[in-house]
């Protein structure tokens, strides 16, 4: 089963690259705008040898990590407050619900005015979006705990604090974990948005720089780098989720 899936993936990748190669070989468009796979490959080698491939990765990942961790911590805490204490829910829920539809990208100019084009503005935009995503899922998960679990816990004589730790948190954890996973994707999105508008390093910055030199081959390398990194991060979060919330997949 697994080997069949691997084979299918290999075939689909090969077909995609073949098609890409065929179209570029037809030279309908200028190869500068639509470079063939070997050109992109050599651009990747060039970026690897120049060191930018890994330095971009490092810079971008570092930014995403700081914003992500800050957003997750804040989102969890706020979700805890709004789901458990009616006062915080009344005060914060409408406000946060109004903030959610604002695209994070729209915050980039504001962040630049507030914090300059340094690291802080990136942390802010990433952290903000991650926070809202994690908050919503935490709030939802903790408010949706099945009444039967709470009743069972109380009639078995559990104190409120034990009920919280041993019943509410585990019952909400699938939602929370799903929130953290989608927040990772959101963090990535905001990272690139913030880097595109002003930075001195990182994958988004590299894309912008390559545009100035019309190096589409190098832009393709950065895009592939983003795709691989995103997929890898998602796979990591899925694996963590499987371990932590082992009972959900059975």
């Amino acid at each position: 089963m697994l080997s069949r899936r691997i084979a299918a993936t290999a075939v689909s990748f090969a077909a995609f690259i073949g098609l890409w190669w065929a179209i570029s070989a037809l030279e309908i468009v200028n190869p500068v705008f639509f470079p063939a796979p070997p050109l992109v490959f050599s651009a990747a080698l060039e970026m690897l040898e120049g060191g930018v491939l890994f330095s971009d990765l490092q810079v971008s990942l570092g930014r995403a990590a700081v914003g992500f961790v800050a957003g997750v911590v804040l989102g969890l805490l706020t979700g805890l407050l709004t789901s458990r204490i009616a006062f915080f829910n009344l005060m914060l829920n409408p406000l946060l619900s109004l903030c959610r539809p604002i695209p994070a990208i729209a915050l980039v100019p504001v962040a630049i005015v507030w914090f300059g084009i340094g690291e802080t503005s990136k942390y802010f935009v990433i952290g903000y979006s991650v926070f809202l995503t994690v908050w919503l899922n935490t709030h939802h998960g903790m408010s949706m705990v099945a009444e039967t679990y709470v009743r069972a816990s109380r009639s078995l004589g559990a104190s409120r604090s034990r009920e919280f730790v041993e019943v509410i948190i585990p019952a909400a954890s699938p939602y929370i974990m799903a929130g953290v996973r989608s927040a990772a994707a959101v963090a990535f999105l905001c990272l690139v948005a913030a880097e595109l508008t002003g930075a001195s390093g990182g994958i988004g910055y590299r894309l912008q720089e390559s545009r100035q030199y019309i190096r589409v081959d190098r832009m393709f390398v950065s895009l592939i780098e983003l795709g691989l990194l995103g997929a890898l991060l998602d796979a990591i979060f899925v694996a963590i989720g499987r371990r932590v919330i082992h009972w959900e997949q059975m």
Partner: peptide, 14 residues
């Protein structure tokens, strides 16, 4: 006063 529910109400995480 103990109660047994139709939906078992076992905690799946334990």
């Amino acid at each position: 006063v103990g109660i047994v529910f139709q939906q078992y109400a076992l905690f799946p995480w334990f």
